[in-house]
């Protein structure tokens, strides 16, 4: 069964120039729609064709700024495609920017509730999960403290524990494994494994080629928002590392 289908999808960002827009620029360019000075366009994704079937474990690789995270956000429904079509069947759980979106004045317990509610929990259903979440985060008494006093590592622990407490249908992950200290990373990796085995489909972005090769059966290589080969994990990763190595050699020479 096809869970996700992207049909010739493109995404173009309108990026505002930093700083104040002068009134003259606004009148001259903004009003007449040919806004060259007030904003510029970035083609983040171009001609993406992708199908994700039931049971797929898809990895996405590519250099920084290739559009990997943008593609994930588009899959998760946060960005709408500016061209082409996106079709998704099933509920998506996404793990990205996970240290964002805390109410800093509320304490850890309360934030567990808020995040849970956003993920569709009710006060009753979250009550059963709140204890396991707290235990997994290992934050102990810190949970009684407002989140504004948390270190970034603690925030990531909490966010990860909340986000992975529900069994997802389609799981989308953006390099969260690099978060937390060593002990937590091992634990997080275990949890990811069990999540990945229970989810109907998984899409991962990572720079860790070794774990990608183990986790995924298919890999998509993105570069400058365009699709490079997509295919069996081993082949694509090999091609990608080869190209990177060549680049290094050229620099060395």
């Amino acid at each position: 069964m096809t869970l996700i289908k992207l049909d010739d999808v493109g995404l173009k960002f309108q990026v505002r120039r930093a700083g104040r827009i002068s009134f003259k620029d606004y009148l001259l360019h903004g009003l007449f729609r040919r806004s060259k000075k007030t904003s510029f366009e970035v083609q983040a994704l171009e001609n993406i064709n992708l199908t994700v079937e039931e049971g797929d474990r898809l990895g996405i690789i590519g250099p920084n700024g290739a559009g990997k995270s943008t593609l994930l956000k588009l899959l998760a429904g946060i960005y709408p495609p500016t061209s082409g079509r996106r079709k998704v069947v099933g509920k998506i759980s996404a793990l990205f920017d996970i240290a964002l979106g805390f109410e800093t004045d509320a304490n850890g317990w309360e934030n567990i509730m808020y995040r849970g509610y956003l993920q569709g929990e009710t006060p009753r259903s979250i009550r059963e999960k709140i204890q396991p979440i707290a235990e997994f985060s290992e934050l102990g008494d810190f949970l009684n403290m407002p989140v504004r006093y948390y270190s970034s590592g603690m925030k990531v622990r909490l966010a990860f524990s909340i986000a992975t407490a529900i069994a997802p249908e389609i799981l989308i992950i953006d390099e969260v494994l690099s978060a937390g200290d060593m002990a937590f990373q091992t634990k997080a990796r275990e949890r990811m494994k069990s999540l990945m085995s229970s989810a109907r489909a998984v899409i991962v972005v990572s720079h860790d080629m070794k774990s990608l090769e183990l986790m995924c059966d298919r890999v998509l290589w993105l570069d400058h928002g365009k699709m490079r080969p997509i295919g069996p994990a081993e082949e694509v990763i090999k091609a990608y590392t080869q190209q990177n190595n060549q680049g290094e050699k050229r620099q060395a020479a």
Binding site: A76, I78, A94, F96, D97, L100, G101, L118
Partner: peptide, 9 residues
Amino acid sequence: ESYIRQHPA
């Protein structure tokens, strides 16, 4: 914003 960037609600 931080919620909007994370969750399509």
